[in-house]
Nucleic acid binder design. Structure first.
Length: 479
RNA sequence: GGCGCCGUAGCCAAGUGGACUAAGGCGGGGGCCUGCAAAGCCCCUAUUCGUGGGUUCGAAUCCCACCGGCGCCUCCA
C-alpha cells in the first residue's frame, strides 16, 4: 500500500508518491538556536523522525534537510544582551540541540544548514523578487508585495482582505506600502540590534527576514519542487505561507508538494512556553531520573495531528510500557533453542500479522497510536506462546518474532534507546550479586525461606531485583 | 471579529456511517503460575463515545444547538 499523508495544502489525506521514484526529499523546520529546545519542540522533530524512518522502512531513500535558525529577532537580542557574536551565542545551543537530538534517538538528517551560511543566496532571491516586481525597497529595507502574488495565503486558507493591518507595536520603523506585506530584507537603522547581524546588500547593510532562509536552503539542497515540507502548526502562518510566496514568486515553480504540520504538545494541559517558563528540556527530565526511551515513547505515543498532553505521570506510564517491550525481547532471546524436535509455535504467524497491521497503521497518515496497538498485541500473544512453550522455542521461530520487533522498532526507536540505556554493572558488584544468589539458592534448596527472603531483601536494597524461574534465579537492576 | 481543532473507561489514546459485542498502553480488582514474590498469561474494569435534538434501516462516526477546552490571525515546534 501507498503511504497516505494529510496535506495542509489540500486539507485532505492524499496518496504520497515522491517526485523522483524511490527517493523522497524533505525539508523539516528546525530549531531557533537562541536557547535550549524543550520537549515540545522535540515532539515535532520526533514526528518528522518517525516520518523519515517510516519512509525508509517502506524502501525509500530519504534526503532530509533540517535547518538551524541562527539569525532572527531572538538570537540577535540574546547575542546583544550577552555582548557576544551570533556564532558565540548559537554554537553552544546547536551543540545542545544535537546532544538532545541524539539522546532521543533521532536519526541524523542529511543536511543541517545554518541560516548565516546562506546570506548571499538569500540576497539573490530578494533580487529576483524585486526584478519580478514582487518586492519593493523602502528606506533600505525590502518588502514582499502580497498584492502581486494572487495565491498568497492559500496554505493557511487566509482571506487576504481579512488579514489584520499589521501589529499595533514594533513595526512603526518600517515603511511598508501595505501593512500586510512582510519584510524580506531588514535594512536601515536598527540600533537595538547592535552589529551582531549585518551583511552587505544592494540596499545597503542589513539582515535577512526570517522566512528567507527556508526558501533558500530548501531549494538549494533539494531542488524545486521537492516532496515534503513540515513543521509545527504554528508555522503555517506566517512562516510557511511566506516561504511559498518567496520561492514560488521568484521562480514561478511550485515550492513543496506536501505540507505536514504537527500539533503542539501541551504540558499539564497548557501550552508549553518559554516565555511563561512552562516547559521541560530533556536535561530537566533526565535530571529527574527519567529515561530518554520513556520521553521518546511518550512524545510519539499519539497521532501527530492531535495535541499531546505531556505529564510526568504519562512519562511513568511510558517507562512501564517500554519495559514490557524490553522484557519480551529478553525472553525471546533467552528462549531460542536449537534443540531438535521442539514443537512449532505461532510466533511466525503472530510476527507477520503484527508487521502487516503496523504497516497499515503507519500507511494511514502515520497513525502511530494504532501502530503501537499492533506492536502490543504481538507482545501479549508472543508472551503467551513463550508461556505455553515453557521458554523453549525453535530458534527460527524466536527469530521471526525478534525480527518483527526490530523492524517495528526501526521506526519507533524506543527499544534501541532502552538498549543503549542499560548500565554496565561493575565486575565487583556482579561477583557479589552472584555470591548472594548462590547462597540464596542454597537456602531455598534447604527450604530456609526466611533466609532466602532476607537475601532477596538485601539485594533489593542495592537496587537489584531477583526473579526465580524454573531454570534458576536471575537478577536485574531495578528500573 | 476571522479561520480551524478537540471532548471516547480512573489516566493516556485509536476508531469517524454497518465485521464496534468500541484497539492498545498505564492503573485497579480477581485468577493461574510461585515456598512467597517478580515476570508473564487469563478474566473483569466504557450496554457506551461532552449534553440535547435531528437525519438514517443503521451514528461514537453526518447535521443543528448548547456546554467545556484549545490553537492560529505577521518572526512560537
Amino acid at each position: 500500500m501507498a503511504v497516505r499523508l494529510y496535506n495542509t495544502l489540500s486539507r485532505r489525506v492524499e496518496d504520497f508518491q515522491p517526485l523522483k521514484q524511490g527517493r523522497v526529499t524533505m525539508y523539516t523546520c528546525g530549531p531557533t538556536v537562541y536557547d535550549t529546545a524543550h520537549v515540545g519542540n522535540f515532539r515535532t522533530f520526533l514526528f518528522e523522525d518517525i516520518l523519515r524512518r517510516f519512509l525508509r522502512w517502506k524502501g525509500y531513500e530519504v534526503v532530509q534537510v533540517r535547518n538551524l535558525t541562527d539569525v532572527d529577532d531572538r538570537t540577535i537580542h540574546a547575542a546583544v544582551a550577552k555582548g557576544v557574536s551570533l556564532r558565540e551565542l548559537t554554537d553552544p545551543f546547536i551543540d545542545a540541540f544535537f546532544s538532545d537530538h541524539d539522546r532521543l534517538g533521532l536519526e541524523r538528517a542529511e543536511h543541517y544548514p545554518r541560516a548565516t551560511d546562506y546570506v548571499p543566496q538569500m540576497v539573490k532571491l530578494v533580487e529576483q523578487l524585486v526584478e519580478r516586481g514582487l518586492a519593493y525597497e523602502a528606506d533600505g529595507s525590502v518588502y514582499f508585495d502580497i498584492s502581486e502574488f494572487p495565491s498568497y495565503g492559500e496554505l493557511a486558507q487566509l482571506d487576504r482582505a481579512s488579514l489584520r493591518e499589521g501589529r499595533e507595536t514594533g513595526d512603526a520603523a518600517y515603511d511598508r506600502e501595505d501593512a500586510r506585506d512582510f519584510v524580506l530584507w531588514k535594512g536601515g537603522e536598527r540600533p537595538e540590534e547592535g552589529d551582531v547581524a549585518t551583511w552587505d546588500s544592494p540596499w545597503g547593510s542589513g539582515r535577512p527576514g526570517w522566512h528567507l532562509e527556508c526558501s533558500v536552503m530548501a531549494t538549494e539542497h533539494l531542488g524545486q519542487p521537492f516532496d515534503i515540507h513540515s513543521g509545527g502548526v504554528d508555522l503555517i502562518f506566517p512562516h510557511h505561507t511566506n516561504e511559498i510566496a518567496q520561492a514560488e514568486g521568484a521562480t514561478g515553480e511550485p515550492f513543496a508538494r506536501f505540507w505536514l504540520h504537527a500539533k503542539h504538545a501541551l504540558l499539564d494541559g497548557r501550552k508549553m512556553s518559554k516565555s511563561e517558563n512552562h516547559y521541560y528540556t530533556v536535561d530537566d527530565l533526565v535530571g529527574k531520573g527519567y529515561r530518554a526511551s520513556a520521553i521518546r515513547r511518550l512524545l510519539i505515543s499519539g497521532h501527530y495531528r492531535a495535541e499531546l498532553n505531556f505529564t510526568l505521570a504519562g512519562l511513568d506510564d511510558a517507562a512501564r510500557s517500554v519495559e514490557r517491550l524490553v522484557e519480551l525481547r529478553r525472553r525471546l532471546t533467552a528462549s531460542r533453542s536449537d534443540q531438535p524436535g521442539l514443537p512449532p509455535t505461532r510466533l511466525p504467524e503472530l510476527a507477520a500479522r503484527a508487521l502487516e497491521a503496523f504497516e497499515a497503521a503507519l500507511d494511514d497518515d502515520l497513525n502511530i497510536a494504532e501502530g503501537w496497538g499492533a506492536l502490543f498485541v504481538l507482545v501479549r500473544e508472543a508472551n503467551g506462546e513463550l508461556d505455553g512453550a515453557g521458554e523453549r522455542v525453535p530458534a527460527a521461530d524466536a527469530d521471526t518474532a525478534l525480527d518483527a520487533l526490530a523492524s517495528i522498532d526501526s521506526v519507533f526507536g524506543v527499544l534501541a534507546l532502552a538498549e543503549r540505556e542499560e548500565v554496565a554493572v561493575p565486575e565487583a558488584l556482579r561477583a557479589w550479586i552472584e555470591d548472594r544468589l548462590a547462597e540464596r539458592a542454597m537456602a531455598r534448596t534447604e527450604r530456609d525461606y526466611a533466609r532466602a527472603d532476607a537475601i532477596r531483601g538485601e539485594l533489593a536494597e542495592r537496587g537489584i531485583e531477583v526473579e526465580d524461574t524454573p531454570s534458576g534465579s536471575r537478577w536485574r537492576l531495578a528500573r
